[in-house]
Computed example of a mutant assay.
Amino acid sequence: MLKILVVEDNPHKLNKIVDSIKSNDIEVQIDICRSFTSGWNEIKDNHFDLICLDMSLPTFDESETESGGRLRIFGGKELAKKMKRKKIEAKYIFITHYKSFSDNHKTYTFEELKSELLNDYKNKCLGVIFYHNKISSWRDELKSHLMEL
């Protein structure tokens, strides 16, 4: 059985990713986190065969009383960096629906960021997938990566 963690704050995208994973003929256990902090706590405390990371994440889980804190534009990348530094052995995939990313220091296109991530984390990062609700090619790409495990 594959143990998979999905770190995603958008409920619609989260459901589509989980449904896509479950539609494959593999036995899986899927855990879900909705923020950078809850994602990191799960990652450091548990073993996962695969982690699906959103790129932009709120710092904390959102609730009726919590706004989620500061948006981390590169939250998924930050989690990958922490995993590398702490020598966490899980493989991961980035899944994002943004075509460009920008913070105070740098602007990336999707392709530039994809190239950087695949180069910097080549032993652990299986892929960087562009999610689009109305185009199904992202599902095929995700399935292909799942079959690599």
Rank of each mutant, 00 (worst) to 15 (best):
S35W: 02
W138D: 10
V128D: 08
E111W: 14
D45L: 13
L142E: 12
S63A: 06
A80S: 11
D19R: 04
K114S: 01
D25V: 06
D31E: 13
I30G: 00
I129Y: 01
W138S: 00
L126C: 06
N133K: 14
W40I: 01
N133P: 14
V7P: 09
D25K: 05
E66F: 05
C125V: 03
M55G: 10
E64D: 11
R72Y: 13
K3M: 06
N10L: 11
M1E: 12
K106N: 12
H97W: 14
V18I: 11
L53V: 06
E42H: 13
R72I: 05
C33T: 01
I4L: 04
I17F: 02
M147V: 01
E42P: 08
T59F: 14
D9H: 00
S35I: 05
C125D: 05
N133C: 13
D25F: 11
L113R: 00
H12T: 15
W40F: 09
M55H: 07
K87V: 11
I26Q: 04
E42N: 13
G39D: 11
K87D: 13
E66S: 09
I4H: 03
C125I: 07
A90T: 11
G69K: 03
E66A: 07
N15F: 07
F101N: 05
M83S: 09
F74G: 08
L53W: 02
S102C: 09
G127Y: 01
D45S: 14
D49F: 00
D19F: 10
H105C: 14
L14Y: 02
D9V: 07
F74Y: 02
F130I: 12
H145T: 07
S136A: 10
L79K: 06
F94N: 06
E8S: 00
Y108M: 08
S20I: 09
M1K: 03
S67G: 13
G68N: 04
P11D: 03
M55P: 06
K3R: 04
K16W: 00
Q29T: 15
G68I: 04
K124P: 09
S100N: 09
S67M: 14
D61Y: 02
N133S: 15
I43K: 01
P58R: 02
L71W: 13
L126F: 04
S136R: 12
K134F: 13
G75Q: 02
L2S: 09
W138R: 08
V6D: 05
E42Q: 14
H145G: 03
T107P: 06
F101L: 01
N104K: 10
I129A: 00
I93D: 01
K82N: 11
F130A: 12
K87I: 12
S136N: 13
N133I: 14
D31S: 07
N46V: 03
E8Y: 08
N10G: 06
